[in-house]
Write a protein that binds this DNA or RNA. Structure first.
Lengths: 204, 204
DNA sequence: TCTTGTGAATAGGTTCACAGCA
DNA sequence: TGCTGTGAACCTATTCACAAGA
């Protein structure tokens, strides 16, 4: 397959989620444009990157299109080998992320939760196995965890991120308020409500 | 001021946060490049958009630079008129976002939390005023709330987003798992751990 | 007639490379 | 000497516009 531009990849991934929300068999680029706000030509080009040639004069077959996106990015929900993740820091936010159903039916599996507080781990009930942060390295290597969601207190964020990097974690979703500085070998994506809101007022 | 490219704006906003984490008086573009992973030329051009001309052969004055970014985007922390936000849906996640200190010292103020469950509102203790979703429109208009954080159950996400739009909300930070479809007059930014993770495995 | 798929044109951003300043 | 600031070149992504297929 030809190289897909990064923005196209991101749109296609969102598109695959949108498609599973639709309850009809076919959809056109114009309709998708209305639903997403992206240009219709952009949508057609994104889809054409998949080299499906599935579209016709009444649009795309939703199921075929969605499956094509999933297999293009190896995000098949039935993937035999799911990517394992963990949540580091089980405060209110970490707990909420742990309980969310977001991982269900994705190609990721929440394989562990970590917290320094032994008591909390003991008491908290969760379908995800919980461990003390003491065992962080051991469990990451043992279970083969590749990605981490970071929701520790801000003071510990940079330190913990460096540990995660040194244990071979490939990517961090950073829910703390700290701007992390890590080698470029590890992917970091920060989620920060205030930063997002600021982007909105500064926006074009 | 000349038009600043959108990616530059986003980087500058992150930069302002990074700068407040630094504990020294000056910093060079090379150092910032190492801390952020962005190219040094990119950083210099971003900063030059501010037309500060503050840099010299030992870099930028951190305080001046940070203040310049803040005033360029009207995100002064001392701003007399803060932008008001609310959180809609006080499940585990909404509650966590409500309690987080993220808004402290920002140009945004968390002015209200909403939930359909009267009991929860009654019982929950919070420094932010809580209201039943019944009063959503009334309170948004009364208080002058401009932005919303959406953390309702997925089934209600699209419906609630449309309500928020119709009440004049300018932007939504969407923490649900739903891809929202709204008119382009309203800014929507979605935060979804699995989508972010997927972007990492698909990444360039 | 409707929609896709795509060359070609355009717009948008990044990086190079170096002049100029402290 | 060591840095910034910025034209110019380059690269990336979006949009236009239309041929071709159902």
């Amino acid at each position: 397959m030809r190289k897909i531009p990064l923005p196209s990849k991101k749109r296609l991934i969102t598109l695959s989620r949108l498609l599973s929300q639709l309850e009809k068999p076919r959809v056109t680029s114009v309709e998708l444009s209305e639903l997403t706000g992206w240009g219709e030509a952009t949508i057609r080009r994104d889809i054409s990157c998949l080299e499906l040639h599935n579209g016709c004069s009444n649009g795309y077959d939703i199921k075929i299109l969605r499956d094509a996106i999933c297999s293009a990015f190896e995000i098949d929900k039935l993937a035999s080998k799911k990517h394992l993740c963990c949540i580091v820091g089980l405060g209110k936010l970490g707990e909420a992320l742990l309980e969310s159903s977001a991982f269900e039916g994705s190609s990721f599996e929440l394989a562990a939760g970590f917290d320094t507080n032994f008591n909390k781990i003991e008491i908290m009930k969760s379908s995800v196995p919980l461990f003390p942060t003491l065992d962080l390295e051991k469990k990451i290597r043992q279970l083969g965890i590749e990605y981490a969601v970071l929701s520790v207190p801000d003071e510990k964020a940079q330190f913990m991120a460096e540990r995660l990097y040194s244990y071979g974690i490939k990517g961090i979703v950073n829910y703390t308020n700290i701007v992390l500085s890590l080698p470029k070998e590890i992917k970091v994506e920060s989620v920060n409500t205030v930063t997002i809101l600021t982007g909105m007022i500064a926006g074009n």
